[in-house]
Design a protein around this nucleic acid. Structure first.
Lengths: 260, 260
DNA sequence: CGTAGAGTTGTGCCATGAGCAACGGCTCGG
DNA sequence: CCGAGCCGTTGCTCATGGCACAACTCTACG
């Protein structure tokens, strides 16, 4: 093999393993010898490929020496991708308009472990913009999105985050537990969160919660830009726009108007 | 590498590719360099692994040189596995009792391309039983399950199957198009199908349709055994039992009683 | 414009993937 | 019951396919 430059099957053994997944999707259940015959490889090769898939829960066996079928890991992967696809697709219907209206970069974030995971971003019209954050994990205490997610998370999670420490990231990072708790209470009351020079010097953001069909907070929607473009006096007006858009996204996600 | 005998990661490159899927499930979107860093491999290695995943639609890119996320192939795999898991799980609630009651092997089959795909099997109590058929594809015209599926399939499919030829498989295989059409009409009228010495000499079967929530035929349920144990005189009684169980499975699959 | 970083491609080397052989378990037929 | 055949699994060796390096292209930023 000379590293196949065009056919897409760049790594042969990976290609074979993925072909096993397709065969099982097609046929439901197959034994090692059947897989080996379909792939045109030796039984021991098929066995090792399927064992690797099994170690990742992508296939499973009925019994110790039985036939293989697709496993729960496949459903898990799909769950991860379709829920997030839904959120990104629905929010994308309205976030470009918000980005234009407030003139800043709009982000959507979800709670993942004890961090804010950025799942979508739409740039505002300015030349001075945020770097691409999708796929990045950001500390909860230092961002507006993080504060929204934390304010609506179980109290136990909030205490875990505080117990793990609130590291300094910028000149105004909130590092005092009491102050963070007070801010989170205000977020819940007011309906939005702010972060000014807390993640990065010169970076400000405002965020509001996105609700799901059952009224629980499933994501956070923010607008962020340079602090000099988002002065104290402008925050409330921006917050109103963000909250309105967050309500629209919530409705698109199935929320019917009565907050949990 | 000496083919790692215990750690489950039998094939390293496959393990790495599957780890990429997990990373994307976790983080939503990642670039080649980020994947390479997470895996601890060179960028070119990560690129080739992700290219292989992409060739199988398991990951996709926004743009030509953009970041990767999980692709529609993942949802397809999950669709294949969860729909079939549902059918097998729901039918399994009642098929063992049927196998005991009629004393024969019970099978569940679905229509897949132009064949009957066997997705579950429960052995009857007799020593003389069928071999394991799960995962096997069987010609539609020669089995009771195939006839049920064909009788309720679009007419175009029926004609395609006939046009492709009806090969002889046993002494009584139906090979005449007119006779097959007449049998299928009778299946639709009577509510069950039979196959006697048509797939294999000495093998008989009776099958009835399983309906889904929308009243369409989603599977076929059969009992099969040696012809000497299922004489002409016993077929109607067995058919009643099979139809009753098929109605139960249908209800479990969400059918509410009014056939489409 | 130049630089840095990211994505992509070509090449050669060696470590890993593949195939062979052997073993143990299970099923079926005599 | 025994033997044969088949299947799943494991150990070993070797050669080839996977990997890293280097180079190229493209894009974004100062």
């Amino acid at each position: 093999m000379s590293n196949g430059s065009g056919d897409g099957a760049a790594v042969q053994s990976v290609d074979r393993a993925l072909t096993i997944l397709k065969l099982l999707a097609r046929d439901g259940e197959l034994g090692v010898s059947e897989l080996a015959a379909s792939l045109g490889v030796h039984r021991s090769t098929a066995f090792r490929l399927v064992a690797t898939l099994e170690s990742h829960d992508l296939v499973e066996q009925d019994s110790d020496r039985g036939r293989y079928r697709l496993g729960v890991g496949v459903v898990r992967l799909a769950g991860a991708t379709s829920a997030r696809l839904d959120l990104v697709r629905e929010s994308r219907a309205v976030t470009p308009a918000l980005a234009r209206a407030v003139g800043e970069t709009v982000n959507v974030a979800v709670l993942a472990d004890r961090e804010a995971l950025y799942v979508d971003q739409v740039a505002g019209p300015s030349a001075l913009q945020l770097h691409h954050w999708v796929g990045r994990r950001i500390p909860l205490h230092a961002t507006s999105n993080g504060k929204v997610l934390l304010a609506h998370a179980p109290a136990a999670l909030c205490e875990e985050v505080i117990a793990a420490g609130l590291p300094v990231l910028a000149v105004r990072t909130v590092t005092d537990p009491g102050r963070l708790r007070a801010e989170l209470a205000e977020v819940r009351l007011r309906g939005y969160a702010t972060a000014v020079d807390e993640l990065e010097d010169g970076l400000s953001a405002v965020a509001a919660p996105v609700l799901g069909a059952d009224g629980s907070v499933i994501a956070s929607l923010s607008a962020s830009g340079p602090t000099f473009r988002m002065p104290e006096t402008a925050i409330a007006a921006v917050a109103e726009q963000i909250m309105a858009t967050a309500r629209e996204v919530s409705a698109r996600m199935g929320w019917f108007g009565s907050e949990a």
